[in-house]
Design a protein around this nucleic acid. Structure first.
Lengths: 228, 228
DNA sequence: ATGAGGATTATGCTATAGCAAATAGCGAAT
DNA sequence: ATTCGCTATTTGCTATAGCATAATCCTCAT
């Protein structure tokens, strides 16, 4: 239930904004399951608002592929298709490669220190969920160090679908994926080193291969699970 | 004025969709001038629809940076700032680099032939507007040859702002930019050759440098104009 | 003339209502 | 029992109305 603003002083977040964030969280976390049908009126009732802000929220969710519309105008929680994951991974690799290069060129010393600290904070005792959250944080720190606001927003759009995909299948995948998780960690280390060395070209190349490899590894682990 | 659907048989484009396209065209063509204020009600009246679909159209336009909202919730036609043009150019270079690489790998023979034909269609007798339209077509053909629908959509979003910027300043720029226009044409030739050779790495590198160089050249030409 | 302050207007956001297409439900005919 | 056809319901899309805030205008004192 979204809190209704009672005495809004200046410019608070709009109801559409709140609804967007709430629904996005529910989809990514898996509370709303892939393929599940959504209707404007039901969502409006459940969140305690009118259909108008719900429509706006749904439009944004559609833009980042978290929902999809059928040919008969039905609204469904997006099915994480491997095809789309591939499409988006290629895009993410391109965009995050650029952000790594810009970060190497533009990051402040403070930002580099924060990146290094986050990298150093990884431990083997983390749960898969924790490790994934830390990886996400590391990537976001690098993105922000690019100092390109438009790029940051676009990466967020491109990766929303990824997170839904991954979080939804964490339990099955990570048991077998621990080896590759270590490999990913080593890749993070190389990227961080390239950033500190201000080597934009190396950072870009490493980041691209890292993103592409991570999705490859993820899909392999999932395939192993499915055939076991 | 948008035609009101009278007897819509099946599923036609929605009014919001039509409003979006109409407003987008007006902004890019310069009929709506940068900085001009827009209000939902006036647009609704002018286009002959209610404010509801207008709101949806405005939301989409905001997403591609063709309009911007002030801190007091006013809606303005976006001012083409050089800062944002730089931000978007870096993104476009990254995305179009990826699309060029994918096109080299995935394009059908038919698509390659169309690309080559469009490239061969350039002539020195074209007006600046014609040349720009042809260049746009060439890039779009390459984008589509990537066979990555999500990437294509994202490039369209990232480049909408560019076109507003460029078309709005064509007359001033192109008088002095004819030399660089020839340089751009040679770059196009190298890219097309790389695609035909199925050399994805070369196509990506050439495309990136081409995009970045084109914006550089554009800004230089504009600077020359401003100081003359 | 000018500036301050309150009243009026304008406007974005939200709620509600209505329409048309699609879907579901149901009964009759075969 | 199954299928066809009609009716009722659901639902996305659009229109209209109301609310709260920001902008504007007007008045009046200095």
């Amino acid at each position: 239930m979204i809190a209704r603003p009672q005495q809004v002083l200046s410019t608070g977040p709009t109801l559409a904004d709140q609804a967007y964030r709430a629904l996005r969280e529910e989809i990514i976390s898996g509370k709303l399951k892939p393929g599940e049908r959504l209707t404007e009126r039901h969502l409006a009732t459940r969140l305690g608002v009118s259909p108008t802000p719900i429509r706006e929220a749904l439009q944004r969710l559609e833009h980042e592929h978290l929902i999809q519309r059928t040919d008969t105008r039905r609204i469904l929680v997006a099915e994480p298709s491997v095809h789309r994951l591939y499409e988006l991974t290629v895009i993410e690799a391109g965009l995050r490669g650029v952000s790594a290069r810009l970060a190497a060129e533009n990051a402040s010393e403070r930002e580099l220190a924060a990146i290094e600290a986050t990298y150093a904070g990884f431990t083997d005792t983390m749960t898969p969920e924790e490790a994934l959250a830390e990886a996400r944080k590391l990537h976001e720190l690098i993105d922000h160090a690019s100092h390109n606001e438009t790029l940051i927003a676009m990466i967020a759009t491109a990766t929303a679908f990824d997170w839904q995909f991954r979080l939804g299948t964490i339990p099955e995948v990570f048991g077998e994926g621990r080896k590759t998780a270590r490999a990913r960690h080593r890749e993070h280390g190389k990227i961080v080193a390239a950033l500190i060395a201000r080597d934009g070209q190396a950072a870009e190349k490493l980041m691209r291969e890292h993103i592409l490899g991570a999705t490859e590894g993820f899909l392999h682990a999932r395939a192993d699970r499915d055939t076991s």
